[in-house]
Amino acid sequence: MSEAAIAPKLGAPIIEMRDVNKWYGEFHVLRNVNMQVKKGEKVVICGPSGSGKSTAIRCINRLEEHQKGQIIVDGIELTANLKNIELIRREVGMVFQQFNLFPHLTVLENLTLAPIWVRKVPKKEAEETAMYYLNRVRIPEQANKYPGQLSGGQQQRVAIARSLCMKPNIMLFDEPTSALDPEMVKEVLDVMVGLANEGMTMICVTHEMGFARTVADTMVFMDRGEVVETSAPEEFFAAPKNERTRAFLGQILHH
C-alpha cells in the first residue's frame, strides 16, 4: 500500500472541538473531548460501543447538544443559534448506520429535496446533480425506485449520494457499514475510499480497520467518553501507546 498515492495536503483546521462535555442526565457521555480536523483530513474514530464516538460526531452537526466546551465548524461556533446551526448543516453531510432514506420519496426525490429547498437550486439542475452522484455511487438505474426496493448496500450508497448532492465540505459517517450484510460492505467502502481520494474532509466512526488503514490520516480511539489516543494509522496499529487501545485492537483484529 503506497501512502504516497493518498498523501494528504492538509489545510487549515475546519473542525475544532475544545474540552467538549456532554451529559445524558447523570451519565457523562463526553469527557473533555478535544479534536482538531484539518481541511481534507480523514479521521477514523473507533472504540468500544458506548464509548461516545457516535455522540461526538453527532455533536458536530448538532444532532446532539453539548453542554460544555466549544465546537467550531468552518469558523462558526455551534450554539443554540438556529441560523448558525442551519449554516453548518448545509456544509456538513452525514451518513447514518440505518441509512435513514425517506421511504415515501423516490431515490431521485431523496437526492433533490434538500438542494431544492435548502440550497434553492432549480429542480432541473438538482436532478442533474443527483444523477451525477448516482452515477458516482454506480446505481443511476435505481433513480425512480423507492428506497424499500433497494438492497441495504444500495440504500447506503443512495444515502451517501444524498449527502453529496448538498456539496458539503465535510462528511460525517456514523458506522455506515454496521447495518449491512457482509457481502454489501465492500461496495459502500469503495465509494467512501473514492470520496477520500478526492480530498473530502471525512470523519468516520467505523470498525472497518482495513478501511481505516487505507484511508485515515488520523486514528482516534475513544473509550468511556474520552479520547484515549490520537495518532497516525501506522503508529496506531503498529505500536498503540495506551493500554486500552491495545486491548481494543487485540479484540477486533484477532478473530
Binding site: N61, L63, E86, R89, A114, M166
Partner: peptide, 8 residues
C-alpha cells in the same frame, strides 16, 4: 435526524 442533517 436525516432531515435535520440535510439542513431542512
Amino acid at each position: 435526524e436525516a432531515a435535520d442533517a440535510l439542513g431542512l
